[in-house]
Design a protein around this nucleic acid. Structure first.
Lengths: 197, 197
DNA sequence: ACACGAAAAGAACGATCGTGCTATAACTGA
DNA sequence: TCAGTTATAGCACGATCGTTCTTTTCGTGT
């Protein structure tokens, strides 16, 4: 890893934090330069454009996400246990960002009506994430823990809803019961998926 | 109503649309002036600052929201019927914005880490909205449609999660099944609230 | 250790930002 | 209808935006 790549990664790591706080669009090059202690042009030289930087931020965050959320789950026995690890890892991931929470959640409502390659990249990531939830829920079906006719996409939709709600309760409302709430909602979801519709 | 108030209202109505699309922060005075066909200074003269404009936008949207979502529900018999009208009215409200969807949802993740009076106003609005859901759910309890020991705040949390999920599925993912999904999730929530925990 | 390529800084660009001030145009009450 | 108020436009400000170009500094292979 050359010096340039090192700096580039450091920039992306810092940019992820800034973007989660002020948004991928709200973030500015100058702001980012100040945060990293670099000059505007020195920082900018690592990227082709602001749009390219935004896409790189998403790519970088996605890698971190896979490491910290997806990987732990895949190292857990199939079924509800794996689903629980996946969800807990997401909550930990979200809480671990001292400011701004999960970038994907923040970017989702920021970019939902802003067509372009950045939005496209985010949509791909979100689809992958929902598919991941579906797939893991599917292992709980085949293990016999969830009912056989469970609609996996619907289940993923409702589980994903909880991640959005948690960011809202935790970040916006600063609800001290946010963690308790999201866990109870998760347990309820799990329970009902195991019962006949 | 004087001419000034008329213009002011027209500005706020247009600003709500713009803000839902690009965010309360992302929205600029020049952009807004172009949208309304006014000069930047002519428009700006109606407000003390951009921050004041943002707060006025929230206030204006809140009034519309009460008219279009809360009022219809309060004109419906207590219980699950009222809850259903409240929820359907919200979905209609969200769908009625051709672009950007519900401003409160969009603003929620935009402002969750941006301290200041705008955020404070939004937090008040969101708390009121959650309380409204709780209260209406409470009428379903007292009518005997929901179980007696239902946690109303938890119920409101989970119902609110569906509004966030709907905006995500509908606006970001452009999922054609979004409406179907949110209705099924709602029905499931209602059903389980009527059964013993 | 020197030379060469990569990395960072400096400076500037046109555009636009939020926000004032001043002048003109449009309403409104007598 | 005219005076006086109110609403809108014009213009300018300092700051910052994304971006480019040039120059200087630094890291690295030989």
């Amino acid at each position: 890893m050359t010096k340039g790549d090192e700096t580039r990664n450091a920039i992306l790591t810092e940019a992820t934090v800034v973007a989660a706080k002020v948004g991928l669009t709200g973030m500015t090059i100058g702001q980012l330069a100040a945060h990293t202690g670099m000059s505007k042009s020195g920082l900018y030289a690592h990227f082709a454009s602001k749009e390219a930087l935004q896409i790189e931020i998403l790519r970088h965050t996605r890698e971190r996400f896979v490491d910290q959320v997806v990987r732990p789950a895949l190292g857990t026995p199939r079924g509800v246990a794996r689903l629980r690890v996946l969800f807990d890892a997401w909550v930990t991931w979200s809480e671990s960002m001292e400011e701004g929470g999960c970038l994907f959640v923040a970017a989702s409502s920021e970019l939902d009506d802003q067509p372009g390659p950045v939005r496209d990249a985010l949509v791909r990531d979100e689809r992958d994430w929902l598919e991941m939830i579906s797939t893991v829920a599917g292992t709980a079906v085949s293990e016999g823990e969830f009912r056989q006719d469970l609609d996996l996409e619907q289940f993923a939709y409702e589980l994903h809803a909880l991640t959005l709600a948690h960011q809202h309760a935790s970040r916006l409302l600063r609800d001290p019961k946010a963690l308790d709430r999201v866990h109870r909602a998760f347990d309820s979801l799990i329970t009902h998926a195991g019962q006949p519709a």
